[in-house]
Design a protein around this nucleic acid. Structure first.
Length: 233
DNA sequence: GCGACAG
DNA sequence: ATCTTGTCGC
C-alpha cells in the first residue's frame, strides 16, 4: 500500500521545531470514529523497528485473525534519519515503517505499532501519526508510560483502567495482558475506540504480555545479526 | 528551577 | 532501542 504523495513531506523533519509543526498539521487527518468491528476484522499488521549502527530495520507481520495464521512478513533496512527524542519517536520510526508497509501485498485492516497513539502530549504518538499518514485504523501498544493519568489496574489478566488526559478524556487503557507482570499502555491510534483497542489486544495475546504478532515482528527485526542482507520471509 | 521522558 | 552475564523464579 502506498501513502498519498503529498504526505511524504511529513516523513522527514530537519529539526524538532519543524517536527512539532508537522505533528500539529497532521492532526487534521485524525479519524475519531471506530471503523472496525470485532466480528468482521481479519488482516492485522504487527509492526516494529530495531537499530544497529546507522541502520534501522523495520518488519511487518500480517496475521489473518479468521484463519489464525501469519500470511505475510516483510522486512526492510535503511539509514537512520532522526535521533530518538521523547515525543518525536515518529520521525525516527515512520520512514522505515512506511518503506516496509509499502512493500506488503496483502491489505491489512488494522496496524499495531510499538509505541503510543493518542497518549502523547500533542495526541500524536507513533500510532496516531502513522494512522494520519496511512488513513487506516491503528493502535499504539507501549510497554511503558509516556503521557496520561491512570490508576494501577488489578493484578488479573484482562483487568484494565482508562488512560486519560488531564481534562479527563479517555485516550487509551492501562491493560493487564498477563498476571504478575507490569501492565501495558494500549492507546487509540486512528479509526478505533478504546473498547475495540482493549478487545482486540486481549484477543491477540496468548502466553506472553505482548501480542504474538508484535513479538514476531520484534523477532524478525533482531534476527539478522550474522548474515542476511536485508531480506527475510 | 525540577522531574518525566514511547523506542 | 542498544550494550551485556549471570541469575532468580515459575
Amino acid at each position: 500500500m502506498k501513502i498519498k504523495p503529498e504526505k511524504r513531506i511529513y516523513l522527514n523533519a530537519h529539526n524538532t521545531k519543524i517536527a512539532r509543526q508537522f505533528q500539529r498539521e497532521l492532526w487534521k487527518f485524525f479519524e475519531r470514529r471506530c471503523l472496525l468491528k470485532m466480528d468482521k476484522i481479519d488482516l492485522i499488521a504487527g509492526c516494529d523497528v530495531s537499530y544497529r549502527r546507522d541502520k534501522a530495520r523495520a518488519c511487518v507481520c500480517i496475521y489473518s485473525f479468521k484463519r489464525k495464521k501469519i500470511i505475510e512478513e516483510i522486512c526492510i533496512e535503511e539509514k537512520i534519519s532522526f535521533p530518538y527524542i521523547p515525543t518525536f519517536l515518529s520521525f525516527r520510526e515512520a520512514p522505515p515503517l512506511i518503506s516496509a508497509i509499502e512493500k506488503i501485498k496483502s491489505k491489512p485492516e488494522l496496524y499495531i505499532f510499538d509505541g503510543q497513539g493518542l497518549a502523547h502530549p500533542l495526541r500524536m504518538g507513533l500510532a496516531t501519526h502513522m494512522g494520519c499518514l496511512l488513513e487506516k485504523p491503528t493502535i499504539g501498544f507501549a510497554k511503558s508510560h509516556l503521557y496520561g493519568v491512570f490508576e494501577e489496574p488489578p493484578n488479573i489478566k484482562g483487568a484494565y483502567t482508562f488512560l486519560k488526559t488531564e481534562s479527563g478524556e479517555i485516550i487509551g487503557a492501562v491493560l493487564r495482558t498477563r498476571k504478575d507482570t507490569k501492565p501495558v499502555f494500549a492507546s487509540i491510534g486512528w479509526g478505533v475506540d478504546v473498547a475495540f483497542v482493549i478487545d482486540i489486544i486481549m484477543e491477540l495475546v496468548s502466553r506472553y504480555k505482548i501480542p504474538d504478532i508484535l513479538r514476531r515482528a520484534d523477532y524478525l527485526t533482531k534476527n539478522r545479526r550474522k548474515n542476511d542482507k536485508g531480506t527475510c520471509s
